[in-house]
Design a protein around this nucleic acid. Structure first.
Lengths: 335, 335
DNA sequence: GTGAAAGCGCTAACAA
DNA sequence: TTGTTAGCGCTTTCAC
């Protein structure tokens, strides 16, 4: 293995000079720097990250903690964050948790992250006070996407407002019986509750009653959205519009309606949240949230905090936008 | 920061004993081990990975090199591989390349991976001889998913056979004019070429001519599949069936047909490859490939090679399966 | 502008 | 069964 010593010998300098030259530090003459660079390239020298970390206390890695990586939203955010971080010279350590409580605990306790990363990016999770304390104790800056935590930088949409604008859209179309398909919250992300709150708030603001039987809960998946829609559509007095807390669930709902011979949007309007990459294909009306921007923004907040550890962490709410497509339409005339 | 020295003091033993006790090595009395474990827990001690790596030469991390992480197939494989690797105590370093040639070069040259990981998992890329040499020089075992490389462990489907079975299905339904939507190959993955070869081979085996104008190439995306289908359907003599090299492209093709007023499957049959998570929802006929199995298998091959470095790397081809759904049907009568 | 040397926190060989 | 000690390869201070 090529070490810094080999490079030093080849260039005829000390290892200290090699280190300085390779890091672009001052106090190295141009001639020397060139010689070192040439020797390093010649020998294909790559510094040992372990040794560098041990000596410097910096890992040049960022940990990403997310519940899933194989869900559109998370994959998109991770992808954009990774791109930004790598450009800044950081590696990405991935911790996708699934719904396993054990895993979640290990990730947040610091066992996995302590001394391993310079900063942490949390996605789509709403940590408890204990978890916040534990992760903060790891040492580096933490940024969170999809929730707001005091002391941490955060990027998110206003989930309640997004839900309200979705519901408002169908109310504007004349719908008065609006169903809700929400997700349960095994990872305690808070997001599902906020979207439900928005749904209810908008109904109330319109002077409409909140009917618990019009609310169905499942997972944030197509399949679960399908099942939830089936339940809603079998009600004695089914909704004429369904607001689903995610596009994946909305897609399932559209499919359920079609299979039941209920025409969308003639007999049933469906709206989701996300603007999933398949939403356009399926002609789904939705409230779009910017995923790339959230990933990049969070990455940059981390980068900023790494440079300036004492800066106040920012909390940014990015805008959502109603995207009207073909799954919503005027409320059907009363039968 | 708590170091091994603190634990040693608290337990009243030497640091060597702490190390042994924590690693479950023999030559530690039960009583001592208990005391050490208790002290470590009490102090919330977490060993420094950098120091451990430097001293032991092992990083306990696996690098995953993939072109995209935000594509269904890759996300699914990474997810399952990560789960398996983490269970074995390994961290995951993510390198998603995009289509940037520079990035690809950096990843394969070893600059990013050298001394950073114990093993590498390559997904959906077909490295050149130079790249194989460079990555092999990094030192640890390498496993590849979706291609076969001499000297590396590999897991994949038989892309040509998968394509042939898709084409056979529509031929069996009586179609004689079968279009192909393929993907170009900026990352040189070989996969697109094999699927096209399978398409042609099956036509020839059925005694049918190969019409270049029936082959459309784009990216592996819904949008690109849509555009390609539009081109095929505008031909003077359009195909009655389309085989797309991925489900995402097939979904785009279905949408293009519907928008053009062409009924699926009455006027046009469409079949893809993958069994994408949305395929069932969209009632898409496809050739399914097992994603979780591929991720887990590749991870286990790596784990095995780490334990037994001199074992012969295995090369596994996992089976695919035709899944007939609603987008394929009998060929329309000749007009 | 350059080099010598002291660690960083741990593992592993060896000694006791 | 336990402790001592020599590194692992690098960064960083300090002296020159």
């Amino acid at each position: 293995m090529t070490t810094i010593r080999d490079v030093a010998e080849a260039a005829g300098v000390s290892i200290a000079t090699v280190s300085r030259a390779l890091h672009g530090l001052p106090r190295v003459s141009d001639a020397t720097r060139q010689r070192v660079l040439a020797a390093a390239a010649e020998l294909r020298y790559v510094a040992s990250p372990s040794a560098a970390s041990l000596a410097s206390g910096q890992t040049n890695a960022v940990g990403v903690v997310a519940p899933f990586i194989n869900r559109w939203y998370f994959a998109a955010v991770v992808h954009s964050a990774e791109e930004r971080l790598r450009k800044a010279g950081f590696d990405l350590l991935l911790y996708s948790l699934g719904t396993d409580v054990q895993e979640r605990h290990r990730a947040f306790s610091g066992t996995l992250l302590s001394k391993r990363v310079d900063a942490v990016l949390v996605l789509g999770l709403h940590p408890t006070a204990d978890e916040v304390a534990a992760l903060s104790a790891v040492g580096g800056p933490v940024a969170i996407v999809g929730a707001k935590v005091p002391g941490w930088a955060s990027v998110r949409i206003d989930d309640e407002a997004a839900a309200r604008s979705a519901v408002r859209h169908v109310l504007d179309l004349g719908h008065r019986r609006v169903g809700f398909i929400g997700g349960d919250d095994p990872l305690r992300t808070a997001m599902p509750a906020e979207r439900r709150a928005g749904y209810r708030a908008e109904l109330i603001a319109a002077g409409l009653p909140v009917h618990p039987e019009l609310e169905a809960v499942g997972e944030f998946t197509v399949r679960s959205g399908y099942a939830a829609a089936v339940r809603l559509l079998q009600l004695p007095e089914p909704p004429t519009a369904i607001f689903a807390a995610s596009d994946e669930m909305a897609m399932g709902a559209v499919q359920a309606a079609r299979r039941a011979g209920i025409a969308v949007p003639r007999d049933l309007s469906v709206i989701g949240i996300d603007d999933h990459e398949m939403a356009e294909l399926l002609d789904l009306t939705t409230v779009a949230q910017p995923v790339v921007a959230q990933g990049v923004l969070a990455a940059e907040m981390l980068l900023g905090a790494l440079v300036e550890p004492d800066g106040e962490p920012h909390s940014v709410t990015v805008p959502t936008e109603l995207v009207v497509r073909g799954t919503t339409g005027p409320a059907p005339r009363r039968g």
